[in-house]
Design a protein around this nucleic acid. Structure first.
Lengths: 255, 255
DNA sequence: GCAAAAGTGTTGGCAATACACCCATGC
DNA sequence: GCATGGGTGTATTGCCAACACTTTTGC
């Protein structure tokens, strides 16, 4: 975290808009599992989503990308707002004095955290291997969690995560997904595992192949993945022109 | 508007969260046209969406329904957030002194309107005939506009309207729509005109009939609309149980 | 009777599903 | 060679779109 960001937490009201926060649901994909990036707040046992605040001259989108850059090291990730969480009691947990003691040592403005926040939910799709999970000044850990192993999170973050996943599943119906979650080259079975992980259900190998190639967003490379057991699968990459065109114009049909 | 709401505009910082506003895109349907409710701010020539602020103990959803109640007289309308507009310059127009002179006469806190607002966009579907458009303290007119006749609106409200319409069209793909926009009983052609108005394109009468009845959300009544020229069409109403079930579980296929 | 609009039925094509066969690799 | 997994092809089904005929009403 930059020096200016450090100082911004001493006097946050000078740098950020009051009452507005954002939470990022960062999805990654590794070993056939959908992962989500979580941070552990100092002095609390619970984990939560990486979050932040909106600078007085930032858009919410820019603020989210800044937070993401700080937590993952990544620029230019796929990032999209999906819902606003505005229950007046959603921050009650944080207001307990005990919860804030641990972070008060670092001269951070505790009063800032006691105000009511309306939080804008963003979700991000990132390439797992490229991420360097990094805690911020108010958290003492930051790491990937298997989606299936996420238990009770702080505040309403379980709700936010659930809503993000729902949105992602809907997204799958009219937008291509994968460029942001997979390495530059990948095999058809890997792409299928990604879709299965997001949807939470098995898909037919042959029908998946037909449907996904039908979108015309894939380029088949003249290579195969070697060294694996069994038949070597073909390698693919995304045709970025057509991929972005499909992002804009939408796809047909659902899963 | 209630007396307490009046006074809340004298000292809004005591009643509302700073920096957060909301704008409502209220859709109605009348004479085969999709309509949107607009208000004209005092001292300005431009029209804009009905908006408001979030009370210090309200959810954003509750605040939107309160605003809607004030502008339309309606309770219990279909209301949904769809996007957050956070460009730091989106409020520049309002900060001009001239723009605010006209409303300063009513002892309203001008400083409040000069701050930067992040606005939560809501869209509402209401029954046209039930609405009584009502201006608020800072506007001197409030009325329905034909969607096709809406020209330049204040601030970024054209963008908000466009985004609302996009969302509504997507919504049509997986949720039933109509209960909130049509009278209790209606004919199949009327329902079709509504879909056509939302989608901005013509649909085949017979395929529409099959598809919409296939959802199982309609009840055919033992009546017809009389007095009209030509063959009397059957009257329908929504089967509310199944309608709400479909709202939750979603529909199949797109338009 | 005629024009205009509404109700209903039929057909063809395309897309999703289910399923079968062959191929390559590690052991 | 055999088990495992990947690549490709085919038949069936069901949905969507295009289209025709009949019925009812006002004039």
């Amino acid at each position: 975290m930059s020096a200016s960001m450090e100082s911004s937490m001493f006097t946050p009201h000078k740098y950020f808009l009051a009452h507005i926060s954002l939470d990022c649901v960062v999805f990654g994909f590794h070993e056939n599992q959908l992962k989500v990036l979580l941070a552990k707040l100092k002095g609390r046992d619970e984990w939560g989503l990486p979050g932040g605040f909106v600078g007085i001259q930032e858009t919410a989108e820019y603020a989210a990308s800044r937070v993401l850059k700080e937590r993952t090291g990544l620029d230019q990730v796929f990032l999209q707002q999906f819902y606003v969480f505005s229950d007046p009691d959603r921050g009650e947990q944080l207001k307990e004095v005990e919860s804030l003691k641990a972070i008060s040592g670092s001269a951070i403005d505790i009063e800032w955290f006691k105000q009511r926040f309306i939080s804008i939910g963003f979700y991000a799709l990132v390439e797992f291997s490229q991420v360097e999970p990094t805690p911020d000044v108010i958290s003492d850990a930051c790491q990937w969690w298997d989606l299936a192993e996420v238990s009770k999170l702080m505040l309403d973050h379980n709700l936010i995560l659930q809503k993000a996943l729902e949105t992602l599943r809907l997204q799958l119906n009219y937008q291509p997904i994968g460029y942001n979650l997979l390495p530059a080259t990948f095999t058809m079975p890997e792409l299928q595992r990604l879709y299965e992980a997001i949807l939470g259900k098995q898909l037919d190998r042959r029908n998946f192949h037909r449907k996904i190639t039908g979108y015309g967003i894939l380029k088949k490379l003249n290579e195969r993945r070697t060294g694996v057991a069994h038949k070597a699968p073909d390698l693919y990459s995304f045709d970025l022109d057509k991929y972005h065109q499909a992002l804009k114009e939408g796809l047909q049909g659902g899963w």
